[in-house]
């Protein structure tokens, strides 16, 4: 697997070498996936393929099914229509709208316990490095209740990173993040992809990634048959769907 060995999360993500032997074979395949909520199709006959080192930018207006697609991929919503391959629960890290933090626990406890619940133990040094990486070292002992929304998002991203899962499913990962936080996220994502990971990211922001790494998929409310056209995302355009 293209991920760090247990415990040596070293805080210098960008220098990780893409050296995993089985990484090139890892892929996420979605065939004719459909999702019906409340008696209507959000999308149907959705097919795409994502290979190691690639990110899928999931776009579309509010209510077009981005979150539902992510939840289907994560296995939280049933996938009765269509086929999903390569998204076993043990392979994925899911970041929802909610950060999944217990507000009464400190940032450090949250990260340590979430990682252990995910089946992976971090050494104390690795824990500090992971917090440092997202700029939360000063706030490590602060209860999550007293962290700002942006800091909570950073902590949630640190959890995804520390999970060392090959497939990241991220729902609006940059919500509430400031400019620096967005850069932190871009660094994490780039390192993840360079190490052979995959990511599906629902976002309104352009992902600051080199073109071959990033493919885009737009879900639309009007078309019952979403356009699975693979088009490179614009390098750095502002919010695409803002009026």
């Amino acid at each position: 697997m293209a991920h760090r060995e247990r415990g040596d999360l070293d805080g210098r993500a960008a220098t990780d070498a893409p050296d995993a032997p089985d990484a090139p074979r890892r892929a996420l395949r979605v065939e004719r996936l459909g999702c019906a909520r409340g008696g209507r199709w959000l999308f149907r006959d959705l097919s795409f393929e994502l290979h190691a080192g690639q990110a899928l930018a999931l776009r579309g207006p509010n209510g077009s099914g981005k979150s539902s697609l992510l939840r289907q991929l994560a296995g939280l919503l049933p996938r009765e229509h269509g086929v999903v391959e390569g998204a076993a629960p043990a392979d994925l890290a899911y970041l929802a709208h909610q950060n999944g933090l217990s507000l009464d626990l400190s940032a450090r406890e949250n990260l340590a316990l979430a990682t252990r619940i995910g089946g992976r133990d971090l050494s104390p040094a690795a824990l500090e490095a992971a917090l440092e990486e997202v700029g939360l070292r000063q706030a490590a002992a602060t209860p999550a209740r007293r962290l700002s929304q942006g800091q909570r998002r950073r902590l949630a991203l640190a959890r995804v990173r520390a999970s060392a899962r090959p497939l990241w499913l991220l729902d609006e990962p940059t919500a509430a993040l400031d400019g620096d936080g967005e850069q932190v996220f871009a660094r994490l994502l780039t390192a993840h992809l360079e190490a052979g990971g995959l990511a599906v990211v629902a976002t309104h922001q352009a992902l600051a990634l080199p073109l071959p790494r990033c493919i885009a998929l737009t879900l639309g409310p009007a078309s019952s048959r979403p356009d699975p056209g693979i088009a490179p995302a614009p390098a750095a355009s502002p919010m695409e769907f803002a009026p």
């Binding site: 994560a74 979430a114 619940i117 089946g119």
Partner: peptide
């Protein structure tokens, strides 16, 4: 309830223990 509201419930459901 608290775990559902803050999202840690779905994280725990996705974890190996289910």
């Amino acid at each position: 309830e608290a775990d559902l509201a803050d999202g840690s419930l779905e994280q725990a459901v996705l974890a190996p223990g289910g």
